[in-house]
Simulated assay, not measured.
Amino acid sequence: MATIRDVAKAAGVSVATVSKIINNKGEASPETIARVQQVIQKLHYRPNSIAKSLSKRRSNLIALLIPTLNNPFFPELVREIEAAANQKGFHIFLCNTDDDRHKVKYYLDSILSHYACAAIINSLYVESEDLDRLESQGILTLTIDRAQFSHPYSAISVDHQSGAKKAVSHLLDQGCRKIIHLSGPKGQMSSIDRLSGYQEALNAFNPDLPQKVVYAHFDLFSGYQSIQSLIQSGFLFDGIFCSDDALALGAMRACLEAGFKIPDQVKIVGYDNILFSRYVTPSLSTISQHMKEMGNLAITEIISLMQQPNAKPKKIRLQPDLVIRESSTQLRGNHHE
């Protein structure tokens, strides 16, 4: 699907000139108008009426691209964003990309054809050119966390290195000295940041402490299988820091099946603070990314950009917090939530 930028490039004029010609605003020479119209026909460009809809507040659909529904974190994040959107009179168009570039392209086209007023994007497979395309069609964009690349648009990120450091420091405070890091896929920015936090915490405490990193997928089975294999190999450990709660719940199951007592023999800390983490036995210590705050901030920023078209996009960085529960310490009385 051709964009207004494609038309401008082929016609040798600016995007603003193409926009003015399409909307019959401003002046242009007859030759320029004819050239632009010829390119529009050649490229089969279809002008998007979203800009007009925005000015008249007729569009209330916000697209939300997420990487998967298999990880419990993302359905919970969707719920928080949807609640915040609904409260402000907007609806969510959910796009589950399954971390597949082909599906990302499909949903980008769908966002345009559904005349969404904005897009909130959490995906490893969205590129800066995709954001340019949406913005050129009048669709406001905001990225969350996974879309960690340099771009001029609004973004919400989480300081995962700080979160990981808090988790590992807690395990060290609880007496752990052989701490495994059950990481997400190698090379992903969120995995890299959490690995850095793990290493920083151990090195600050004692550079001579052993470090062990096991790479896995962000799901229950991968967490279970990874720790089960490690136990069967005879590797000794007394603490596990997991890159997300799904991995942690799988790791916990493997430890319990092997006869380890949690937290007496093995202490475990996850990451995300999903709902399940509160109700498993033992309840899971974890790092909260403040999903509710993230959802509210995303919708607030989108609305701000709508109301102030010339406002500078914001780069918001959230600080995660440690939530201590039974998997990492013997708690008495009320649990820390």
Rank of each mutant, 00 (worst) to 15 (best):
Q38Y: 01
R57I: 00
F260S: 02
E326F: 01
Q137M: 12
I21T: 10
A298Y: 02
G197W: 08
I66N: 04
Q161W: 05
N206F: 07
D145K: 07
K186E: 14
A258F: 04
M252P: 04
P207W: 05
M1R: 09
Y215F: 15
K267P: 10
I302V: 14
G295K: 03
E80S: 14
H217K: 13
A34I: 03
I33L: 00
R133G: 06
I324W: 06
E257L: 09
H335V: 14
P75Y: 11
I92F: 09
M1F: 11
S113A: 08
N23T: 15
R194S: 13
T97H: 08
C117G: 15
L318E: 04
Q308W: 05
T141R: 04
I268Q: 12
E27A: 09
V280S: 06
P185I: 07
E200T: 15
P320F: 11
Q38H: 09
P309K: 07
G239R: 07
N334F: 10
A8H: 03
L202Q: 04
G175E: 10
S196W: 12
D100E: 13
V18L: 08
D244S: 08
A246W: 00
Q87W: 04
H170C: 03
Q188C: 07
I268Y: 10
S304L: 11
H160S: 10
Y106I: 12
Q319H: 11
